[in-house]
Design a protein around this nucleic acid. Structure first.
Lengths: 196, 196
DNA sequence: CGGTGATCCTAACATCGTTCGGAAAACCTC
DNA sequence: GAGGTTTTCCGAACGATGTTAGGATCACCG
């Protein structure tokens, strides 16, 4: 029975998160203030504590939201027959997702918020999504811890270089096909890793 | 004419930086306070402003110090005849340097300090070191912007994954040879990229 | 020895996240 | 609808932060 009050409560939470995202995008992940968020939603800072236990709790909700969005993108991907095609499409999707919102990338994948560590609940969302990405690799015949780790290093390396050194550009993420060719030629069991 | 006073001044600056590094290593790059640093060197916080214009100026000096240390490691490397051997040794040296001090890695290579951007002087030091690393690649016959970018993404990806997900371990940096084999097989003109 | 600049301090400011206590509003029960 | 309860929201304020102001004290130079 969804209470009328709890419904409105949840609605206000979303409103706060939206305002926080907007400020984070404009002024950096850590460049916003509780008083600013409060003003954006027509409140004073202390009132935010009705909806979130702390600023870190807001970060935590944003963190979970970010990974849930990534999960949605993953679920919305076209079902390709060739597992290698799926792998390539997954990598491109991930890189698009990353460069689309620098603040989100930093919050989700880099330790930029001083004291923040995701709660176990939010961390579980992240783990699950990353696990799904890994399963795409497995289906392509890539097996073994070291091959998986090499893949994550390669793709996340492209992403981090892109947003750190040329935000908004494509200098690194444009190398995704070249990088995958390289990776697949080395890690794929014995078939071809034809381009495109 | 090195004044006696300016000499002592420089000495105190070093003392402050050493204290800041110690606190940064123990409590995170941004997990220290001017009052803490001051106490560590036997002062009160405002006195630090005699030696640094702001906290960001301390970060800036640490940034330059970090890159100067990296430059020293680069200069101290044994002179290997084979440029590919030099490349491998350089990558290993870099990864060792990175995992050795997480706080330094974050300050030098990740945008973790909220408002901080290196001054032009400190940035020049960084540019020069990275340029030297690039020249090692060129000597190995690796040419072209995209090849260079792919290399930086790969190596920095290994480093970032290591310190972000398993600080103190070797799960990712242990893959450096495998990664270089993969990279060289794909990017090296036409010779062999024999392991070890 | 007198003077000048560097050094270091206490006090205080603005801003931050956060807590407290109470007023207003929304809701549920009778 | 009235009464009571819970949620919402606020002003005031606390401790901590980086930083500034103003004044002592000290080191050095002539």
């Amino acid at each position: 029975m969804p209470d009328r009050r709890t419904e409105r409560h949840e609605q206000t939470r979303e409103e706060i998160l939206t305002a926080a995202w907007g400020l984070a995008r404009g002024q950096g992940v850590t460049g916003w203030t509780l008083r600013e968020v409060a003003q954006a939603v027509g409140m004073r800072a202390p009132s935010l504590y009705v909806y979130f236990a702390s600023k870190d709790a807001i970060y935590d909700a944003m963190f979970a939201q970010g990974y849930r969005e990534l999960a949605a993108r993953l679920a919305a991907m076209p079902e390709l027959d060739d597992p290698v095609d799926r792998l390539r499409a997954g990598a491109r999707m991930f890189l698009d997702f990353v460069v689309e919102d620098i603040a989100r990338h930093q919050l989700l994948f880099l330790p930029v918020v001083p004291g923040f560590e995701p709660s176990s609940g939010s961390y579980a969302v992240a783990e699950q999504v990353l696990e799904e990405l890994r399963s795409v690799l497995l289906e392509a015949g890539i097996d073994g811890q070291s091959s998986l780790d090499l893949y994550t290093a390669l793709i996340s390396g492209l992403a981090t270089q892109q947003v750190s050194n040329e935000p908004g550009g494509t200098r690194w993420i444009g190398l995704v096909d070249q990088a995958l060719d390289m990776y697949l030629a080395s890690e794929l069991p014995a078939s071809d890793a034809r381009h495109r």
